[in-house]
Amino acid sequence: MAGSTANDRPFARLDRSGRTRRLRRLAEAALTGYDVPVARLTPLGRGLNTMFRVDGADGHRYVLRVQRADGPGTAQVRSEMAWLAALGRETDLVVPRPVPTRARGLVTVVADPAVPEPRTCVLCHWVDGRFVDERLSAPQLYAVGEFTARLHLHGARMNGLDRGRVDDLTEFGRSQVDGLSDAVLDRAVALAGGDERVRAAARRVRAVRAELGCGADVFGLVHGDLRQENYLFHRGRVRAIDFDDCGYGHYAYDLAVALDELKHLPQRDELRESLLDGYRSVRPDAATTDPAVLSAFAGLRRVQLRLRT
């Protein structure tokens, strides 16, 4: 009997390109739920989710996201889209704008026999811009700081959405009342091969969180992954994309992520001060931009990434 082909191979055994080919058919099915005339569908090679650029016959461009099976559930994705829609209505911040389905929903759930489980899909308008990385300038980081502060001002009003905490240490932590409890830390240390530095970093953040409290001046809905791949520039303005990790947390978490992503750049000190100056120009809150607070959250972020790889 001939060996199995890519078409009948189990989904879990496929490489990224093989899975993308399967998910393309699912994406095409999802698009039938939108009033968008599709001319071309192109896979995008970034991120944990499967993304497709959608070139419309109407001349507009969109991004379709097929949610990963182990990511946020449908209700949480709907909450993410609700925040993006509110940002589009209530601010001039440039973020992905959700496209409603024909039924006026913000998400659609699609199944395909070649994919093991139904997938949540969302369609957003394309965000024009370019990523800068090594050529980042102080004025650009000042603009990122301003943008982040204004995002937080809006996030402070977005209560009650179905989104988790951005500072949970592990998947197990997300299922607990406190994502940094001693039980969570014990499991995290074991996951890290007994490395007690994981416990030390988490306890440091626990102390900082307790000191900051959870008032609207320091805590709210945040982006959750504000690294260089998720902000871009167009005609002098900063824009943000990929809100898949958004959730509730201390505003300092977003700043810590953004700052830690600059550490490989020779001009990092200048960029750091510019970002914080831009943030403080909108939200002059010493607690959120305190160096010790930012350092603690940066340490937590590094541990989170280590434990998720």
Rank of each mutant, 00 (worst) to 15 (best):
A149E: 08
A149F: 11
A149T: 11
L151E: 07
L151Q: 08
H152I: 08
H152G: 11
H152T: 10
A156C: 04
A156G: 11
A156F: 01
R157K: 15
M158P: 00
L161D: 08
L161P: 04
D162E: 15
R163S: 10
G164K: 13
R165I: 03
R165L: 15
V166S: 10
V166F: 06
V166Q: 09
V166L: 08
L169T: 01
L169F: 01
L169S: 01
T170D: 08
T170G: 09
T170A: 10
E171P: 05
E171S: 14
F172R: 15
F172G: 10
G173I: 01
G173F: 02
R174Y: 03
R174S: 13
V177C: 05
G179F: 03
G179K: 09
L180K: 03
D182G: 12
D182E: 15
A183M: 00
A183I: 00
V184M: 02
L185N: 11
L185T: 15
R187H: 06
R187F: 01
A188T: 06
V189A: 09
A190K: 14
G193V: 04
G193F: 07
V198L: 07
V198Y: 05
V198N: 10
A200N: 02
A200K: 04
A201V: 04
A202M: 04
A202H: 06
A202L: 05
R203W: 02
R203F: 00
R204N: 13
R204H: 11
V205L: 08
V205H: 03
V205P: 07
A207D: 13
V208M: 11
E211V: 10
E211Q: 13
E211I: 01
E211L: 10
C214D: 14
C214Y: 08
C214I: 12
G215Y: 01
A216P: 13
A216N: 04
A216F: 00
D217K: 05
V218K: 05
V218H: 04
G220I: 06
G220T: 07
L221K: 10
V222S: 05
